[in-house]
Each structure stands twice: as structure tokens, then as C-alpha cells.
Amino acid sequence: MAEVAMNKDFETLFQQLLAQPLGMKNSHFTPINTDGGHSPMLGGGLCTTLNDYIHFLDMIYHQGIYQGQQILSAATIKVMQADQVKGAIIPPDNYIAKALGQAHNGIYGLGEWRELVDQQTGEAYQISSPGWAGAYPWINKRDRVYGFFITHVVGSSAKEDGFSSFYGSPIISRTVSETISGH
């Protein structure tokens, strides 16, 4: 839709609208070559560095502003972090339940998991976007901390002891939040 609306390919849009303004000099989307064309692999296809991705998290944390420049509107950030499923029935063994022991149905934002939610306001105060391969970017607005973990698990031995980097990463973020905030 973005390509049609802007009459530009996705990678060009990503570079012009996000990567360049955020100083993400080493970031691009992995292409999927279909009939000679360039279709980006949006789910899990971002090739980036830790420093580049921290710029992105910084912008999200600061309501769309990065180094004094409005990259995304605060309204866009609010929509991204809003409950996008509106009370849909979520299986009890979902990511939020397994990873954090939380029981709420508003787990999906746009491109973000709504991990921890204020029960009175319904607003997410911890968001993330974990990858199955061990990437875990997160923002905890309540404790005013954000970061990015990459865990690497080698071979099948990773599953023999039950460890999952996907489900284990939120434990690391909770430890960091508790350490920084003194909880």
C-alpha cells in the first residue's frame, strides 16, 4: 500500500522516511526476489546493527522524536501501541502468558507486543517486538528504560533443557528494569 501511495519501492521509502533521518546507516530489508523484482521480507527481514536499532527504539520511546526531529507523529506511536484486537479471545498459552505470566487479551499493537499493560488505563507500558531467532527489543515506559538483547542458541541442545530465547528474553528485560528502577 505504501509503495502504491508514494509511487516508490519499499526499501526507498524505508531509507528516506526512517533509516536516513534516524542515522541507521547499516540497515536495510532483506529482499525476496520474485520474478526479478525486489519484495522486502517485512517479517524478520530487517538487517541492522545494534547501534542502528537503538536509534529506532530511542525514537519510539520519545513519541516519534529523534534528536529534536519529528520522525513519526505522537498519534502514530499511540496507534502502534494501542490494543489492536479489542477484546478478541486470545489462546491462554500465548507469548505474553508464557513469557511474562500476564493474562490480558490486548496483546497486539501494530508491529509491537503489548507486554505489560496498566490495568486501569489499558495503556501498554512495556512493549516489545521479539524475534524467534533471539532478537528482543523492548521499551518499558514506566521504568524509563529500553534496550535490545540478542541471544544466540546453538543447535538442538538449546531445546533439550527447555530454554527458549524467545520466551526467555522478557525475563532479562524485567531484571534490567528492576535493577535500574530499584524495584
Results as ranks from 00 to 15, higher is better:
residue 3 E to M: 06
residue 4 V to Q: 12
residue 6 M to Q: 11
residue 7 N to W: 09
residue 8 K to D: 02
residue 12 T to Q: 06
residue 12 T to C: 00
residue 13 L to P: 00
residue 25 K to T: 13
residue 25 K to N: 13
residue 26 N to H: 15
residue 26 N to T: 04
residue 30 T to I: 03
residue 33 N to M: 11
residue 39 S to G: 12
residue 42 L to G: 00
residue 43 G to D: 14
residue 43 G to M: 09
residue 46 L to C: 08
residue 52 D to S: 08
residue 52 D to F: 07
residue 54 I to G: 04
residue 54 I to P: 01
residue 58 D to I: 02
residue 64 G to A: 01
residue 64 G to K: 00
residue 66 Y to P: 01
residue 67 Q to R: 15
residue 68 G to F: 05
residue 72 L to Q: 02
residue 75 A to T: 11
residue 76 T to V: 11
residue 78 K to C: 08
residue 81 Q to M: 14
residue 81 Q to H: 14
residue 82 A to K: 06
residue 87 G to W: 11
residue 87 G to A: 10
residue 92 P to L: 09
residue 94 N to D: 14
residue 100 L to Q: 09
residue 102 Q to D: 05
residue 103 A to G: 11
residue 104 H to A: 03
residue 108 Y to R: 02
residue 114 R to M: 00
residue 116 L to T: 00
residue 117 V to A: 07
residue 119 Q to L: 05
residue 119 Q to Y: 01
residue 123 E to C: 04
residue 124 A to S: 15
residue 124 A to L: 06
residue 124 A to I: 10
residue 134 G to A: 07
residue 134 G to E: 05
residue 140 N to Y: 10
residue 142 R to F: 04
residue 142 R to H: 12
residue 146 Y to T: 11
residue 147 G to T: 07
residue 147 G to K: 06
residue 147 G to F: 07
residue 147 G to R: 04
residue 148 F to H: 08
residue 149 F to T: 05
residue 153 V to A: 05
residue 156 S to C: 05
residue 156 S to D: 13
residue 161 D to I: 14
residue 162 G to D: 02
residue 163 F to C: 04
residue 166 F to W: 13
residue 169 S to A: 15
residue 171 I to P: 01
residue 171 I to R: 14
residue 173 S to D: 09
residue 176 V to W: 08
residue 177 S to V: 00
residue 178 E to R: 09
residue 182 G to T: 08
residue 183 H to I: 13
